[in-house]
Amino acid sequence: MSDPTGPFEPKIVAFLCRWCSYAGADLAGVSRLEYPPNVVPMRVNCSGRVDAEMVLAALEKGADGVLIGGCHPGDCHYVSGNYKTRRRVALLQRALSEIGIDPQRVRLEWISASEGHKFQRTMTEFIERIRDLGPSPVLAATTKEATGHG
């Protein structure tokens, strides 16, 4: 599928909390709401489980964008995990921009179990955004580095 000579197709990883965003993605499915297939979803119990290392690992392994989906503020199944994620993501985005990675490549969204449409919209918009930003510079840089040393 990933033809290096073809047009750029973003690769995206989405960490979705089990109770809200993953269920919202399920609802998008049940409602047959179409969106581009560039994203591989992964279920975590809580958006609070998502740490910076996971996001950085995804970028390092070739993700052009990472989406984190959690419950709306006040609705976290685990009381307050989403607030912690919000702070972590804000810090991470600042750190990313300092090392020359567009912070828009990491996005945090609140999507409830009843928001299938929001899931569809978020995915569609995010994929388009990443398409506009172009391929992530991370993989290219790490490959170059590896070759340089190799």
């Binding site: 990883v13 992964m42 975590v44 119990n45 809580c46 609070g48 489980r49 998502v50 740490d51 290392e53 996971m54 690992a57 995804a58 392994k61 993700a63 199944h77 685990y78 307050s80 995990g81 912690k84 972590r88």
Partner: peptide
């Protein structure tokens, strides 16, 4: 309850969620 918020915060990696550890997530990614 297994939310894993502590796992993300643990600076050493000593706290892990059973069957959803950091190393599992890395391989999945």
């Amino acid at each position: 309850e297994g939310c894993g918020t502590c796992v993300s915060a643990c600076p050493t990696g000593a706290a892990q969620l059973k069957n959803m550890s950091d190393s599992q997530i890395r391989e999945m990614i």
